[in-house]
């Protein structure tokens, strides 16, 4: 009996997010977090207190209000400041994400083989 309760509860939990998940981050927040402040040392636009970043944020807000797509916005900024302004390089540079995965997997498998009996 107890077993069935667990299974039902587990299924409920796993299905819940499909129904109720609500994203409370605005597009502005996401985009300003994925853009680097070019005059600061490694801070994103979202975090930086510099006035330069503040001006950039205003431009970004306008772009969002004008209905530009995420890709258009990112293209606009990369064209002006180079690709270093994009803090999500893995979205276009798949090597960056594949390389550590392959490396990690090879490491894991070798380690496992070395220590286990078979």
């Amino acid at each position: 009996m107890n077993k069935y309760i667990s299974i039902i509860l587990l299924l409920t939990l796993l299905l819940l997010p499909l129904v109720i998940y609500e994203d409370n981050n605005s597009r502005y927040e996401k985009l300003s977090k994925s853009l680097l402040c070019p005059v600061c040392q490694g801070e994103t636009l979202f975090d930086s207190p510099s006035e330069y970043a503040d001006d950039m944020r205003s431009v970004l807000k306008e772009q969002i209000d004008n209905g530009m797509s995420d890709k258009q916005i990112m293209d606009y900024w990369t064209a002006r400041f180079g690709e270093r302004i994009n803090t999500n390089p893995q979205n276009s540079n798949y090597f960056l994400i594949l390389f550590p995965i392959i490396f990690g997997l090879v490491f894991g498998v070798l380690f496992y083989k070395k220590v286990s009996n078979d």
Partner: peptide, 28 residues
């Protein structure tokens, strides 16, 4: 540890090979 290491030093290699700068951010 390996992944954090790669993420930290990747920009250095990227810059020396492609002479372009790159930022590895939070989402990586």
């Amino acid at each position: 540890a390996l992944i954090v290491l790669i993420g930290t030093i990747y920009p250095i290699f990227y810059e020396s090979f492609f002479s372009r700068q790159l930022t590895v951010g939070r989402s990586f």
